[in-house]
């Protein structure tokens, strides 16, 4: 390549275009959107009520009447999976949402004010980084009761420090930048500086991490349910898998389909997260 052919600067490309150009990320985005729609429309799509017993013969493999087969109580596995997906996604987005909000507030305060607050927050997040989270979630849920809100709360409590560290690091570098100084000199109060000037510029890595966190929260909930710490009144995919443990030897469909649902959801979240990272993180855009 001669010097003349070298472009002076890469042409600006819209974020959406980069995301769409990454074919696997675009595909994963579609899958995720489809799963969300299906979960939202579960009452319309499910042929039976998820808990209805004896809607078909027990332990029958997939056929025209029951696409995903039936379990040992003659419940329709497809209906259970549709409703279970709803609960699993609710836990995933709920826990990740709360953790992200909490992380932004705590990390923002620590990164903006620095000093003692910052030291304190860093010590707390360090503790969370070392203590095995899954087991802390297990004891929290076992002691406080396996309701869906306790599960969401426990996962959120364990996840917020990651976001807080991230936001703090961004705030530390951004708060000394000239555009923030300019706003400060113009008389902007702390609230405007934090939410109006710094936060919008710190959001990119938060969005990426928040997306990945949704999938992690879904897996964590599945693990808790599998160990017997699921909410029996809100049947998630993890709880369906736990019930299937007893009968999967004779009925593979009771574990295969709910597992595929969880796998597709988490996989698409992970691929979308990676894709967002490519879009939002300019350093990796050059690849």
């Amino acid at each position: 390549m001669s010097m003349v052919d070298l472009p002076l600067a890469p042409r600006p490309v819209s974020a959406l275009r980069i995301f769409a150009r990454n074919r696997s990320a675009a595909l994963a985005g579609l899958v995720l959107a489809a799963l969300l729609l299906v979960a939202l429309a579960a009452p319309l799509l499910a042929p039976y009520a998820p808990g209805a017993i004896g809607v078909g013969p027990a332990m029958v493999g997939p056929d025209a009447a029951h696409l995903f087969g039936t379990d040992e109580l003659g419940r329709d596995v497809l209906s259970r999976v549709l409703y279970g997906l709803r609960i699993s996604l609710l836990v995933g987005f709920g826990a990740a949402g709360i953790a992200t909000a909490l992380g932004i507030v705590m990390g923002g305060i620590a990164g903006f004010s620095g000093g003692l607050v910052d030291d304190l927050l860093m010590r707390v997040t360090e503790v969370f980084q070392v203590i095995p989270r899954f087991f802390l979630a297990v004891v929290l849920v076992a002691f406080f009761g396996a309701s869906i809100w306790n599960i969401i709360g426990a996962i959120a409590i364990l996840s917020w420090p990651d976001i807080a560290r991230l936001v703090r690091a961004e705030f530390l570098t951004l708060r000394t930048r000239q555009f923030v100084d300019a706003a400060r000199v113009a008389g902007a109060p702390a609230g405007v500086l934090i939410f109006g000037e710094i936060l919008p510029n710190a959001l990119a890595p938060v969005v990426v991490n928040g997306t990945l966190m949704v999938g992690q929260a879904m897996l964590l909930e599945a693990g808790l349910s599998y160990l017997g710490l699921g909410d029996p009144s809100q049947v998630s995919l993890g709880l369906i898998l736990q019930e299937a443990q007893q009968i999967m030897r004779r009925a593979w469909w009771t574990t295969a389909f709910p597992g595929i649902a969880i796998f597709l959801a988490v996989l698409s979240l992970n691929v979308v997260g990676d894709g967002l990272n490519d879009v939002l993180n300019p350093r990796s855009r050059e690849r």
Binding site: L241, Q245, G259, V271
Partner: peptide, 25 residues
């Protein structure tokens, strides 16, 4: 790379259930 991504997008106990059904049962 894709297989690795798939590997950590599934619940490990579900993977175990599938492995058990196929190789053992």
């Amino acid at each position: 790379t894709f297989l690795a991504l798939a590997g950590y997008s599934m619940p490990v106990f579900w993977l175990g259930q599938l492995v058990l059904i196929v190789f053992s049962l």
